[in-house]
């Protein structure tokens, strides 16, 4: 992978320039991408830390401390002169005024938005109420229809029962019914012969069949 990048670099080709669809090419100084690992020749290299003599170390430390101190004072001076943060006021009354102004501005925006939302909300609620009323009316109609249907069903049953009630045994005609029942005695017992025919009654006898003809010669 590194070889590919290196060849591209040697040939002066950036990865972007391979794609011709780029209208404005902009070359970027080449760096080894992070995905490319350490070079094979450098893999086991241990960088040597420079060992400085002690007096030099102390001298360097002193120089840096001085430099930092000097720089601090320069920076302080320039901050006092140029800083935008320092320019802003620290007077509490002025700050309060600014805060109030800002609050009023924000509040005005908020009020405006609230008014817009109020109109929308009222419209929405009115529409919702209308829809609800419509729905309720529909439901009432449906329920009434259902009730009517069930009533009709019940009346049908009653009518059928009334028609059937002509044959019912009541207190008035019970004697007659008993007499009739006694007069018409019915025997439900029966037997079955070889041919599968029913012989009703206890006392019924099968009819006598014809004499058998002897086939023997």
């Amino acid at each position: 992978m590194l070889a590919v990048f290196r060849k591209l670099n040697l040939a002066g080709i950036s990865l972007e320039s391979i794609n011709n669809s780029y209208v404005n090419l902009q070359s970027i100084r080449w760096r080894k991408p992070r995905c490319v690992p350490t070079a094979k020749s450098k893999r086991f290299r241990v960088p040597q830390t420079p060992i400085l003599p002690e007096d030099e170390q102390i001298e360097i430390k002193r120089l840096f401390n001085n430099y930092r101190n000097h720089l601090k004072s320069v920076r302080r001076y320039l901050i006092n002169k140029h800083s935008k943060i320092e320019e802003t006021t620290h007077d509490p009354e002025e700050l309060l005024k600014i805060i109030n102004q800002d609050f009023e501005r924000c509040s005005a925006i908020n009020d405006k938005w609230n008014a817009e939302q109020k109109i929308l909300r009222e419209q929405r609620i009115a529409k919702q109420l209308e829809d609800d009323i419509k729905f309720a009316k529909q439901r009432i109609e449906l329920e009434l229809e259902k009730e009517q249907q069930s009533l009709e069903r019940v009346e049908e049953i009653v009518r059928k029962q009334k028609e059937a009630s002509v044959d019912f045994i009541t207190a008035e005609n019970i004697d007659k019914a008993i007499d009739q029942a006694l007069a018409q005695e019915t025997d439900y017992n029966f037997a079955v012969d070889i041919n599968g025919e029913k012989l009703h009654g206890r006392e019924t006898r099968p009819e006598k069949s014809e004499k058998k003809v002897a086939l023997k010669q």
């Binding site: 120089l63 001085n66 430099y67 000097h70 320069v74 920076r75 320039l78 140029h82 935008k84």
Partner: peptide
């Protein structure tokens, strides 16, 4: 610098040699 930017070592060296800042260690 008054608005709080830092600077790199080579820049600090150049500014030091220019006499604008103390000379860099």
């Amino acid at each position: 610098i008054g608005n709080g930017v830092t600077f790199s070592t080579p820049t600090a060296q150049l500014l030091g040699l220019a006499g604008y800042l103390p000379i860099h260690p």
